[in-house]
């Protein structure tokens, strides 16, 4: 489904990604973790070409994203993405947030888009908030809406970029619950997160990144059982202490 082949990226002279290679198969859940500044957010943004890269290639569902002939809007419409800061559109109601891209990008009719949007809103448990504005919801609620907004596009896979790291602790679980459910339904997911509980529960593989490189790419059991690299070990020790 997603193939990342030898991707390298520089900001000027500074290398942010070094020769990253990995795959996400259909129905697979892959968790990407690592210290801050390790390039994991940049890497996941390369998958739908929000960040350009200078070397290597990323193939999503058979389409190379770095190819200048690729219709990026069409590709991105098939890849759902959830952001650290939710990024709901603050001037639109929840309903408008859920329907605007369905109508303007997929060309769905208003009724169909509304139907789909409300169904998903119900699924994330927020049907009663349909007419509110994002600023009137809590962070956890906003992030659940953001997940529903991405799902409304009927994505073939989902990217999560630290979906819980901007949330107050008591709101993290409501978002993780939605993600766990999604994973159990067989959605292909690539998640940048530090939530190791989530990784243990649903991940198939865990990727550990440090200084722009993929240091470890292992099955969940291998990663938590016997991480090979020292850096991954010390990272795990640090975040599991809490």
């Amino acid at each position: 489904m997603i193939a990342i082949n030898n991707v390298s990226k520089w900001y000027g002279d500074f290398q942010v990604l070094t020769d990253c290679t990995t795959r996400v198969a259909k129905g697979e859940v892959v968790v990407v973790c690592g210290p801050s500044g390790s390039g994991k957010s940049t890497l996941i943004k390369c998958v739908n070409a929000l960040e350009p890269f200078q070397k290597g290639s990323v193939v999503v569902n058979g389409i190379a994203v770095e190819d200048t002939k690729t219709n990026l809007p069409r590709l991105r419409a098939q890849v759902g993405m959830v952001f650290q800061h939710f990024e709901l559109f603050p001037h639109m109601t929840i309903t408008q947030n859920l329907t605007v891209a369905q109508m303007k990008v997929l060309g769905r009719g208003k009724e169909e888009a509304l139907d789909k949007g409300l169904k998903l809103l119900d699924r994330v448990g927020l049907k009663s908030q349909a007419d509110k504005f994002p600023g009137q919801l809590s962070g956890g609620q906003q992030q659940r809406v953001a997940i529903a907004r991405a799902l409304a596009m009927d994505p073939i896979c989902m990217l999560f970029d630290e979906p819980t790291s901007a949330l107050d602790p008591e709101m993290i679980n409501e978002v993780l619950d939605v993600m766990v459910q999604l994973a159990r339904e067989g959605m292909t997911m690539m998640c940048v997160t530090h939530e190791m509980g989530f990784a243990r529960k649903v991940a198939h593989r865990v990727i550990f990144m440090d200084q722009g490189a993929i240091v470890e790419d292992a099955t969940k059991d291998d990663f938590f059982g016997k991480p090979r690299s020292e850096r991954a070990q010390s990272f795990l020790a640090k975040i599991l202490q809490h």
Binding site: N48, L72, P73, R76, M81, F89, P90, A101, V105, L159
Partner: peptide, 25 residues
């Protein structure tokens, strides 16, 4: 920057991110 990213990630063209997301705000 995330607002533009969010628009693009939903499949908006660059112009659509201006029209629906960035200019209204």
């Amino acid at each position: 920057r995330g607002q533009r990213f969010a628009g693009l990630a939903l499949g908006f063209t660059e112009w659509q991110t201006y029209r629906y997301v960035r200019l209204p705000m």
